[in-house]
């Protein structure tokens, strides 16, 4: 009497009929294909993390009245910290938006000439931001010591 519940080799074939096997694989491929299509083609705008500055009030999902995340590059010379808030302007594709960030240090690598994402609401042409995230590029260059003496931000120097 063999009580062992173990199968000693691969299971006997034919437990799953060939027709059923083809059908289930076909169904799986169809579901995965449809899922892939939905994710890559139709969900795009809702999965995008931000609206570019020039799309605010233009693109669907970037309406000026709602809470947004806007992306643009911090303009050179625009950063001013006063009374516990930080003022700066961000530009993308020749459209500039003034931003008032409700705190002093936006954090991360925040500096002039660097692209940032600001969370907040558009109010009377000014973007009232409460969160700032820095979007650094995928380019890496060695720090050049002689450049450190200049007052401008490294991101501005790199752009030249």
């Amino acid at each position: 009497m063999d009580l062992s519940p173990r199968a000693t080799g691969p299971v006997a074939p034919g437990r799953l009929g060939n027709r059923r096997k083809v059908l289930s694989i076909g169904l799986l491929v169809a579901v995965l294909g449809a899922g892939g299509l939905v994710v890559t083609k139709f969900l795009t705008s809702s999965l995008d993390y931000y609206c570019n500055v020039d799309e605010v009030g233009v693109k669907a999902g970037c309406e000026a009245g709602r809470r947004l995340r806007i992306q643009g590059t911090v303009d050179e010379g625009s950063v001013k910290a006063t009374n516990g808030v930080t003022h700066f302007t961000v530009t993308f594709n020749h459209v500039t938006v003034p931003v008032v960030y409700d705190s002093l240090d936006p954090g991360g690598l925040f500096q002039e000439c660097i692209p940032v994402v600001v969370h907040g609401v558009m109010k009377d042409g000014v973007f009232a931001g409460d969160e700032v995230e820095v979007k650094h590029s995928n380019e890496y260059t060695a720090k050049n010591k002689s450049r450190l003496t200049t007052a401008e931000s490294p991101a501005c120097s790199q752009r030249r």
Partner: peptide
């Protein structure tokens, strides 16, 4: 590539345009 995000794109995809310093 599919969606806009905060994360950077990869720096080493095209071997002729590596966006990384040699020693890095």
């Amino acid at each position: 590539k599919l969606w806009r995000g905060l994360h950077q794109d990869s720096s080493v995809t095209d071997t002729t345009k590596v966006k990384l310093h040699d020693q890095m």
